[in-house]
Design a protein around this nucleic acid. Structure first.
Lengths: 234, 234
DNA sequence: AAAGTATTGTGAAATAATTAACAAATGTCG
DNA sequence: CGACATTTGTTAATTATTTCACAATACTTT
């Protein structure tokens, strides 16, 4: 068994070469540079990884775990802009756009995250064109996904958009049709832009129609075709 | 007076050094490379500069003019994701994320645009770290703005969000309190996520309250403080 | 186990916004 | 200049969703 000292000494960034495309294009020397600017932290469910309105000292690489990106709006209500899982960088747009984080990032499950000093990260962007291209690709996808998501949210009725969120969990986050919903009903409401009460009602309608089975946080999709149809018809 | 040939020969990209930060960090040699990959086109109001679902052959530099970024959603209704004016790059996220444009870009006023071959553009990103950093900054701002906009749209009531859009035109687009609204009522509805009828009603309520004066497309904000207050209170 | 806190369920009343259908005004083109 | 298409205004009826108030359940903490 390794001693703590050895564990600490071991460069961790190299370990992420296989799980992150942007990291994989870095040279060994650059990986060492990244390591120097990085510190690894574990977060429990509910803990804030990035706090809205705080200064951007670092960007974050979520190694594993499910997280939410959320923003407090004018009504003083939280909106969840995105739910995703590691491996993934978060907080990059804030770091490039200004000095303050415009949104929070919180752990929805236990999450292992690497806090990367922004200065070191920016140097890599300037020096390695392949790396900056990959980061650009990542951000591009984020923006485009969000455009689509936003249009859906505006145009679809609640039932359809809630169906979307269910399919997002089964197909993207968990890649199976039964899962533990990491969001409370209130958070689920914040995710699809409604109230917890409305979530309850729609979920129960879906249970009545025998489209899903629900046992507390456990959700099982039993009629995916119909769920997809509901999602499509708006 | 210049002949057409001279006009054609003259490198136009150099002319944009003073109006675009990303362009300003390019070397003379790189500017020449950009020029080779670029062709200048003028669009009239209503013309599509980028068409949703078409292949991404080029990204676009909007030199001057007001444009809209819009996407057809599941209800087969257009949503306007953004209205802005040149100088500005558009279409970059699509080019980096995939092969097809996920949204359209259309001219709202006469617009001068440079169509840039993506291959040449991508080479510049890979070779010039300062350029890629500037493009990253631009995209970061776009994403953050859109996050904020999306949260506002969800949380605010229509009147408040329409007030937002008015302030956006006076403070950002025109930088004066009287302007010619470049959107039809229908488009204005698509911009704030509602119907043209609702736009009419809210606009009339604002006229009644002596907050704005309207004469067809001409709009004059006469009580900006109150408009701001309406925008704030949601 | 008890007590307290956070989360979830439920139904009726209230409301913001949409829909639909028609009228008026404006712009465009031969 | 007149005809046609597009854009805008207006109203009442309809609807999806929220709000509110209260009950029940699940989780923590001592």
């Amino acid at each position: 068994m390794q001693t703590l000292k050895e564990e600490y000494k071991k460069c961790q960034c190299k370990d992420c070469v296989n799980i992150s495309v942007p990291v994989s294009v870095l040279t060994d020397q650059e990986l060492d540079l990244l390591c120097i600017s990085t510190t690894k932290v574990t977060f429990q469910r509910g803990e804030k990884i990035i706090k809205q309105d705080s200064f951007c000292q670092n960007i974050v690489f979520i190694k594993s775990g499910i997280y939410k990106i959320h923003q407090t709006g004018p009504i003083n209500r939280d909106e969840i802009l995105k739910v995703d899982k590691g491996p993934q960088f978060v907080g990059i747009p804030d770091a490039f756009a200004g000095k303050v984080h415009t949104y929070s990032v919180s752990a929805l499950t236990e999450t292992i995250a690497c806090m990367i000093d922004f200065q070191g990260f920016r140097d890599l962007i300037e020096k390695n064109g392949k790396f900056s291209t990959e980061i650009l690709k990542t951000m591009s996808r984020t923006l485009i996904e969000h455009y689509g998501n936003c249009v859906n949210k505006i145009q679809k009725q609640l039932t359809a958009f809630l169906a979307d969120s269910l399919l997002y969990f089964t197909d993207h986050i968990y890649e199976r049709d039964e899962f533990e919903m990491p969001l409370t009903r209130k958070e689920w409401g914040e995710f699809i832009g409604t109230t917890r009460e409305s979530v309850t009602k729609i979920v129960h309608a879906l249970i009545e129609s025998e489209i899903i089975e629900v046992n507390g946080r456990n959700i099982r999709v039993i009629n995916k075709d119909l769920l997809q149809k509901i999602s499509n018809t708006g």
